[in-house]
Design a binder for these strands. Structure first.
Lengths: 301, 301
DNA sequence: TCCATGATATACATTTTTGTATGATGCAGG
DNA sequence: CCTGCATCATACAAAAATGTATATCATGGA
């Protein structure tokens, strides 16, 4: 319970929590297991509490330790952001930019946009973090976010690039085998593809037909990309953005007239990034490219 | 431009920026000047850019270095928050809680509340950070904030404890010497006490009489507490919360009928803190005590 | 049951980091 | 102009952190 622990100890601590073992953390940190063990000992001594219950199977964090994890993660995110900012020095066309988006956007929409950006700015390294968490920008887990909901935080610069319409689709093999619903009530006889536990994703879609609920999903998965793969494999009927689905001729629209909803598409970055050349460059490029995407032109369409 | 710099280097870097010299930073960090110098060298080598221009008068950060400061500050705030959370272990009535408020609230209103809290919970250490920045909670610079504006961030738990009415006052010596204005137009002949550069503070007061602008202030200071001291010293006419001013019999109200405005009083904490016993204890205590304060009872009234 | 595997803990050698002492330089004041 | 005091830079010794090698224990599969 003495002076402030070295910040190194926090880094080690975080990695041990993530990894669940001293040995594993040591490998990732390019240290050795005894060193990592000593770091944990030192941090426990310094904070005056027990952080892990040790066992031959690994280290299990105590409840007290779990409370501290988010702070260590904040430090890690800030450290990574600092390094990105430092990369490339002052020059606008060098360095690293980190983008976050959903898996679907990241795999189906962004790649051609990022490719053309790299063509124009070969000195800029791109990082792509695919997930559905919305707090990434505040914590500086990423420099730019492409999201389907309006960012609420005040310190973000957000631009709405348009709306992307969504409809239901099925693979043509599925349609041949099982037929297609003529009306929404027919959904009960079909296999719907939808989210598993991520009801936030479901709710963010806004109003859906009554039958489109978790109970009626015959295939559930929280990865929108895996849902799309299942759709393409003929598992069942699932939602998809029109501008993506149209690239796959084997996908046939389902009840296109009856069901139609839209998601807004937003690009956002942290306020402080406005003056960082390379981030601004990519921000504008993505805004333009996504705008073309939602209008149905370009982006591989 | 090699691997990730040790987090220790960031801590040293931040202290060198704040201090402007290797020697000064060394003193604060309980290191020595050569060590601090080596840390800076190592960080520059690792990031691949020049961070300071060295001189016998100290080190001046380069523009590139200044871009990185906020990230290092985020790390420092997270580190401090981690240590506060770790303090006291799991027990609700031990550990450290950090409160932020304006100087005025912190000096005139909170002390008796904090005193009674300490009486009930002697095991809890209190920290008080007085300033007018509103982002403190998000960055975890503090655990609880007492503010006069509604916190906007989604991840905060905020409670409005009431409204505090404000009016103009002057010291009775001033009134004897210069008389008191009979109407707002008379303000021109008097010395008004107000903010210097902090127009945010001024604007947050809402609608003010037309003559209460920076140009008409005969005494300008961004510290509300120093303004209050000037008011008590008879410098001029200034605004003050009624519930504070009434404790000082030598202060006489000015145009109390004609001018009256109110500020909301809010207590806020980070969502994650709700489950941290000691923070919750103080949050509730402050909410109750401030509620009594705005109603004009207790708090030394 | 026995062995292979992967985990943590400990003992000792090595490397790295830090501190001490000193020198060089620039500014402020008499 | 010189002196006092602050700064940063450098050389060498001491201390601390790290790595290597090994022991010990638990688990899972043949």
């Amino acid at each position: 319970m003495q002076g402030e622990p070295g910040w190194e100890l926090y880094r080690t601590f975080l990695e041990v929590v993530r990894d669940g073992s001293l040995s594993g953390a040591a490998r990732k940190l390019s240290l050795t297991q005894p060193t990592v063990g000593r770091h944990v000992d030192a941090l426990e001594a310094s904070l005056g509490l027990s952080l892990f219950s040790r066992s031959p199977q690994g280290l299990k964090p105590t409840p007290a330790a779990l409370e501290l994890v988010s702070y260590a993660e904040t430090m890690a995110a800030a450290s990574a952001a600092l390094r990105r900012t430092a990369s490339g020095g002052a020059k606008a066309d060098r360095g690293t930019v980190r983008v976050t988006a959903s898996e679907m956007i990241g795999c189906e929409v962004l790649p051609p946009l990022l490719a053309s950006f790299r063509d124009s700015h070969p000195g800029i390294t791109l990082e792509l973090a695919l997930n559905n968490r919305n707090e990434d920008l505040l914590r500086r887990d990423a420099d730019i976010a492409v999201r389907m909901v309006r960012p609420r935080q005040k310190s973000l610069v957000a631009r709405r690039v348009g709306k992307s319409a969504i409809g239901f689709y099925a693979h043509r093999n599925y349609a041949e085998k099982y037929g297609l619903p003529k009306q929404i009530a027919d959904f009960e006889k079909h296999c719907l593809i939808g989210f598993d536990r991520d009801d936030l994703a479901l709710r963010s879609l806004g109003k859906l037909p009554g039958l489109v609920t978790r109970d009626n999903f015959g295939f559930r998965c929280d990865s929108d990309l895996a849902q799309f793969s299942a759709l393409k494999a003929g598992v069942g009927i699932g939602g998809c953005q029109h501008n993506i689905a149209r690239r796959f001729p084997e996908l046939v629209p389902v009840l296109a007239k009856a069901i139609r909803f839209e998601l807004e598409v937003w690009v956002a970055m942290h306020e402080d990034m406005r003056s960082t050349g390379r981030v601004r460059l990519l921000f504008d490029h993505l805004a333009a490219g996504l705008s073309a995407f939602v209008r149905g032109v370009g982006a591989g369409g």
